[in-house]
Design a binder for these strands. Structure first.
Lengths: 214, 214
DNA sequence: GTGTGATCGTGAACACCGTACACATAAGCG
DNA sequence: CGCTTATGTGTACGGTGTTCACGATCACAC
């Protein structure tokens, strides 16, 4: 127990409890504010109240910390998409329901990108990436990846007879590309600065395009 | 006086001819190899054979150098797209021609992204961005921007009667988003590592989607 | 209890980066 | 020639990632 904290000023700690988590949280906060390049190891340790070298007990290097933050950001994106899906009114018609779900995935994606541009950008800055975003097993505890949510929704579309089976292969890449591209152009690409209502309008039209052209 | 260097090795230069250009070239080479974060001021000066502080006579800061490199990268992208357009067989049918041109813009974009991932990424890392990519006047000498090539092609589609006029507004954003998104996912996103033929196949299907869903 | 080894944070280094400043050199022009 | 101006040098400062020897603390055996 460390009840011996006599409230002075700078007692040496030496037992942080969970420094790894503290660094991850600090890094996530940095990423939220300035994207992947803002997650600076020294600043994270500073916020955790710890010497810079202490980070190396928990992360091999800056890149490892960034990867962890990236994984957390992906989880946050997945949660946002799931929330969008959960807020959907239940429809009987399976075709309409599947269509609505695909749209919800898209709008959830875009909404998250707009609300948390820093986290969104870090979510796609992993060094491994293909595995971490698209593979079944994700590091962060338990949930589905954004990519998996998309593929599941596309499968629903096929089962509901909306999307012909022969067009199913690679469909996730097409839908993902369109939505991801718009998100990128809006938050740090040439379309940055578009006012929100117009951006939303373009988003809806993009989802129309995907739905129709898939 | 440092004329007393007996011709050994390192005569001081003091007149470089065109240091600005040398730095820009060095920076472009760095960007080609490692994207925007690889254009390091000190390394550029090193390659130009000059002291680090010399760069500040020609660029306000690292960001300014990066912006210049970014502009050059955009020009390179535009040239690649124009080359793709120029390689097109001339068709009589204006509708088919317009469609082919739109496709060419897309494939040129994707091809460049695949061939020069570093330059491609730096092309979209300007600090101003909306202006530099989408506005009529570009810094680099004279040519059209990639964005302008796209809008021109879409206008052709409208004139040829392929694209209904009421769907024209924002169409450049939709097409651009789809293609840009795929490019991003392929080069440093989760789809990196897809083998080339499959990537090309997905690219074609994406362009189908755009053509149909626009 | 009391060692004893493993765990975890410290402190001082190193190399690298961007940037600022005073100074040296060269070129142009009266 | 001497003046001004443009351009490159040298040195320095603060910030960064990373390493390494060291020290504090815990956990467990005895």
């Amino acid at each position: 127990m460390r009840g011996s904290e006599t409230g002075a000023s700078k007692r040496v700690t030496y037992r942080h409890g969970d420094l790894r988590r503290a660094l991850l949280d600090a890094g996530t906060e940095l990423a939220r504010g300035g994207g992947p390049e803002a997650v600076v190891l020294r600043e994270a340790t500073r916020r955790a109240g710890v010497a810079p070298s202490a980070a190396y007990r928990h992360f091999a290097d800056r890149r490892a910390l960034l990867d962890a933050v990236c994984s957390a950001a992906q989880s946050a994106l997945a949660v946002a998409i799931e929330a969008e899906l959960a807020g959907l009114p239940c429809k009987e018609d399976p075709a309409g329901r599947a269509r609505a779900r695909l749209r919800a995935v898209g709008t959830g994606y875009l909404r998250f990108a707009g609300a948390e541009p820093g986290l969104f950008r870090t979510a796609f800055s992993a060094s491994d990436n293909l595995r971490s975003a698209a593979s079944p097993a994700r590091a962060g505890g338990g949930g589905l990846t954004p990519f998996q949510l998309l593929t599941a929704t596309l499968d629903e579309l096929v089962e509901a007879g909306v999307l012909p089976r022969e067009r199913r292969p690679n469909a996730e890449f097409l839908a993902w590309s369109a939505v991801h591209g718009l998100a990128m152009l809006l938050i740090d690409g040439p379309l940055r600065g578009l006012d929100k209502t117009q951006a939303q309008h373009v988003g809806q039209r993009l989802l129309d395009m995907v739905e129709q052209g898939l």
